[in-house]
């Protein structure tokens, strides 16, 4: 063990001058600070590197742009000398006790990764509000259940701590899919490791505030999910619980999206407008866990005001997931270019 927490933080950054300082300060202000913070300046054209250096962290720069977050993180992985490695996005800040809450999850040698609660830092536009509800719902209902059954679907790439040895044995973060975090999580399961979700460890990323950025992020996430299913499905079949979770997510990605975008409009036009209700029929059911979680954070009015946006985002989400299924599985035209979503 070396130093305070035996932890190195990797911050991949490409043109993040507007957010990198907040991210670094939030890491430096941790109750349990890391041994080292490494910012990987992925050949930014702005002053990301200068800002990072001025805050006293190590800055590394690959000879040319690596083309993805995974590539930037891999560039620095060989420089990590600690038992644990944390990855955090350059636009994400941490609650002051985030590392303190997350790192004990790795005391169990069978656990290779741990992730925390993700909530948008800004909740203003319809997209940020939709994402806020989506996260409250998923992180207060889906993810704790996945954790109880010892198979969180993803150790979120925006903030996760990994066992460095396990990370290296996997060859770092793979660039073969658009969702390197999901790829890594499923690879860990395949290798016999466990992954944990710790809801007390909170991080706050900047979420896409307009449709242009949201579009890029949704395209990357949707293609990433389908690419991972395509890549890992044989192995996932033999991982208990994960096989059902992935199959059901895939089923809903295809058939719930078709129902949303094709079946319901047909019923609305040719049978009765009452079918419009189907788009929001589950609003009270979604609202229940969301409002319970929001109440515990004293954010109930913010959640109530944001609820309608969730249904806008969900409809848009269904378009992108269906597009990803069509292109990846039917046309066999995989998305290969990593476009930064925010």
């Amino acid at each position: 063990m070396s130093g305070k927490s035996d932890l190195t933080v990797l911050v991949p950054a490409y043109n993040e001058a507007s957010t990198i300082a907040d991210t670094i300060r939030s890491i430096q202000d941790q109750i349990v600070p890391p041994d080292e913070i490494i910012v990987i300046d992925d050949c930014s054209s702005d002053n990301t590197a200068d800002i990072a250096r001025s805050l006293g962290v190590t800055v590394m720069r690959p000879p040319k742009n690596t083309g993805s977050k995974a590539g930037a993180q891999n560039f620095a992985l060989s420089s990590v000398r600690t038992g644990y490695t944390m990855a955090i996005d350059a636009d994400t800040t941490l609650a002051s006790d985030a590392i303190q809450k997350l790192i004990p999850a790795l005391d169990d040698p069978g656990i290779s990764a741990a992730c925390g609660l993700v909530l948008p830092r800004y909740v203003k536009s319809v997209w940020e509000r939709g994402r806020y509800i989506e996260y409250l719902f998923a992180f207060s209902f889906y993810k704790p259940i996945q954790d109880y059954y010892e198979r969180p679907l993803i150790s979120s790439g925006c903030f996760s701590i990994y066992r460095t040895e396990a990370l290296r044995a996997n060859g770092g973060w793979s660039t073969r899919t658009m969702a390197e975090d999901m790829d890594l999580t499923w690879s860990f399961y395949k290798a016999g490791y466990g992954v944990r979700f710790i809801p007390e460890a909170t991080c706050y990323p900047v979420e896409p505030h307009d449709f242009g950025f949201m579009k890029k992020q949704l395209r990357r996430w949707s293609h990433g999910f389908v690419q991972n299913v395509k890549l890992h499905w044989r192995d996932v079949l033999h991982i208990s619980f994960l096989r059902s979770t992935v199959a059901i997510a895939m089923w809903d990605a295809i058939f719930a999206s078709i129902a949303y975008l094709v079946l319901l409009p047909i019923l609305i036009v040719f049978v009765s407008p009452i079918f419009l209700l189907a788009y929001m029929i589950d609003a009270p059911a979604v609202a229940f866990p969301v409002l319970v979680k929001a109440a515990s954070r004293n954010e109930i009015w913010k959640a109530v005001a944001s609820l309608p946006s969730f249904f806008v985002l969900r409809t848009v989400n269904s378009i992108f997931i269906l597009e990803a299924v069509w292109k990846e599985l039917v046309l066999c035209r995989p998305l290969r270019v990593y476009e930064k979503g925010h």
Binding site: E134, A179, M182, F225, W251, D252, D282
Partner: peptide
């Protein structure tokens, strides 16, 4: 990241049963 379309389809019922 969130995979799929949360709250819709059979996923919601799956998690309720779990």
């Amino acid at each position: 990241m969130i995979a799929g379309v949360p709250g819709t389809g059979i996923g919601g019922i799956y998690y309720i049963l779990l």
